[in-house]
Design a binder for these strands. Structure first.
Lengths: 152, 152
DNA sequence: CTCCTATGGTTTGATGTCGAACTATTTAAT
DNA sequence: ATTAAATAGTTCGACATCAAACCATAGGAG
């Protein structure tokens, strides 16, 4: 029963990755259209991390938390810091490292983003319902986790 | 039973979009690491379209087929054409339009990409199995379709 | 102690992507 | 027929992202 034509397996993977790509595209641009001028999903994600977990983190820890390269994190932090949304200080205990923390302005920006996001989420829930999301979450989490573990 | 705390609904959506974003990220970079030098997922997707469906298409049709802007399609076509993988000619019946078609070199490149992709797909199937993909496909397709219909 | 490797960050160059502004052509409206 | 609105493509500027190359510091092997 679990035996399958290899071609159809490949096709299944293709289709899933294709849907995933399109959804990622559509959702991130929908997000960014309602966000304050200049705020991107990548930047919001950093603020969200600090609002939920607090504390100070090294850029490389943020990079692995979000599955991006250190170069990408450098770039995003270099956009957040001039706006005063995060502050970055040298790590006393490690001459190479730096430590990032959110500022009050960053918290205010995050709150504003959440406020603007609410109507969009309501709209999506009204149009699609929670069913498909509930059904997709567990398999997606498994795919993500194993895919992540494979990148070695 | 279907009644839910609105906060948990928002959280569900957040999580699904988050998983989707990470999977899109990981899968596309995994794809591009095994592809021939200079080939990207975006470019492969165009070649794949023509190999499967044949014919000639206008850039704007390709753009809507792949849910990207015309500007994005212009950019991708401007990378494929100099490499000789597609050819672009004026549309006789419409002075504004242009028509894109794949070339023999494009077909050869596509075949090479498929050949290189096979081991990666095998690896993914071996590590994850088809189960989570089969489970995710239908809900993802529904989310994608309705999200797509909302962008108006 | 000295050297070699590992780790943290940055820079550079390339690609994909968007939105906005622009040109050219087509179609519809009056 | 003239004009206004829609459509096809392009260009530009910004951002996210990666890989590769690079600098600095830390840690371990002898």
């Amino acid at each position: 029963m679990t035996r399958q034509d290899p071609a159809s397996d490949a096709d299944l993977l293709f289709r899933v990755f294709n849907e995933v790509g399109i959804i990622a595209q559509l959702s991130s641009t929908a997000f960014e259209r309602v966000m304050p001028e200049g705020m991107t999903l990548a930047q919001f994600t950093i603020l969200n991390h600090f609002v939920r977990l607090g504390g100070r983190k090294r850029p490389s820890d943020l990079a692995s938390a979000f599955q991006v390269t250190r170069a990408t994190m450098t770039s995003t932090l270099q956009r957040l810091e001039p706006k005063g949304l995060v502050e970055i200080v040298a790590d006393e205990s490690d001459g190479r490292g730096r430590l990032v923390a959110i500022t009050d302005a960053g918290r205010a920006m995050h709150a504003d983003c959440l406020r603007r996001l609410a109507p969009l989420l309501d709209d999506i829930l009204a149009q699609i319902g929670r069913g498909p999301f509930a059904a997709a979450l567990a398999p997606l989490a498994e795919i993500r986790e194993k895919l992540d573990r494979m990148r070695d």
